[in-house]
């Protein structure tokens, strides 16, 4: 087995453990490369099926190509596609692009708070109706208590402390100092009723692994990742007011892999195009504790 097969097998194993152990599971899909690889791995694990809903938190400031891509794959792959958003903050213009608040507060409003309330079912969820092709209010308001997330340990300091199965308390916060042990492939999968859980099947993957796997499996990705002729591309996808493309000549997956291995990106942090990280002194830590992905 090569290293990609090993990574794939462990991730599939974790997805299957999650599916066997927890009710009310969902998978967060940010539309980015990592969570798309995660979605692909779910199709691997369950042989073409995805037996839980995909949840997307729409900030309303996502780059439009991302939403079009999301809905295309949701239809093609027959996904149970759900989204939620902070409609109140958007209505009252409590956002950074509206000039009302800073970047960190905006992330908290449009992402962390929207996520918490979408997962709990307190705020409306919208589900794709495969017959009409449009979204409608989802009748299922049961809380999602197991959330599968595509974070990687190499992304950023705080993420390297995560476990494959990581409990959050009722406020979604994360007590990283008191985490359960994980022996061999025996993960902690027993939790008191009411526990909210994050499941991290991609923890051991690196950015390079993600691209190598996208190439090997021929996984469809958003065109924003590639230079369309202007010498710029996105390395990490987010909201357009806070995400800037990087200077890069890579026009396809193979060129990105080459660029990561030897080219200009070798020693540049992946999220360098994400403005909110810089505003949060200690990296993502403040946001992470509030449930940010």
């Amino acid at each position: 087995m090569d290293h990609l097969e090993q990574l794939e097998s462990l991730s599939v194993h974790i997805l299957r453990e999650a599916y066997a152990s927890f009710k009310n599971l969902c998978m967060l899909w940010s539309i980015g490369k990592d969570s798309t690889v995660l979605l692909w791995l779910a199709r691997k694990a369950f042989y073409g099926h995805v037996p839980f809903p995909l949840v997307h938190i729409d900030t309303n400031f996502k780059i439009p190509e991302m939403i079009a891509y999301r809905d295309r794959l949701a239809r093609e792959w027959g996904l149970e596609m759900v989204y939620g958003m902070n409609e109140e903050a958007l209505r009252e213009k409590q956002t950074f692009p509206d000039g009302a608040i800073d970047r960190i507060a905006c992330c908290r409003n449009l992402k962390s708070t929207a996520l918490a309330n979408t997962l709990s079912g307190k705020w409306p969820r919208y589900v794709l109706n495969h017959k009409t092709g449009s979204y409608e209010v989802y009748k299922n308001t049961e809380p999602y208590t197991g959330v599968i997330v595509g974070v990687r340990a190499d992304e950023e300091g705080s993420r390297s402390k995560e476990r494959y199965f990581s409990p959050r308390d009722r406020e979604n916060s994360w007590d990283f100092g008191d985490q359960p042990p994980e022996f061999w492939n025996q993960f902690k999968t027993d939790f008191p009723p009411g526990t909210h859980l994050r499941i991290h099947p991609l923890l051991d993957w690196t950015e390079l692994n993600i691209w190598e796997y996208i190439e090997r499996e021929n996984i469809p990705t958003v065109s924003l990742y590639y230079n369309q002729g202007d010498g710029k591309r996105y390395r990490s996808l987010g909201c357009y007011p806070c995400t800037t493309p990087i200077e890069s000549p890579s026009r396809n997956v193979a060129e990105i892999i080459e660029e990561l291995k030897s080219g200009g990106l070798k020693n540049v942090a992946e999220r360098s195009g994400r403005a909110q990280d810089k505003d949060d002194g200690g990296g993502l830590e403040t946001l992470r504790r509030d449930g940010y992905m």
């Binding site: 359960p180 042990p181 994980e182 022996f183 061999w184 025996q186 902690k188 027993d190 939790f191 008191p192």
Partner: peptide
Amino acid sequence: RFVIVDNYEIRGG
């Protein structure tokens, strides 16, 4: 290889 769980926590292995 095994682990032992008590009150939801892995207590030993």
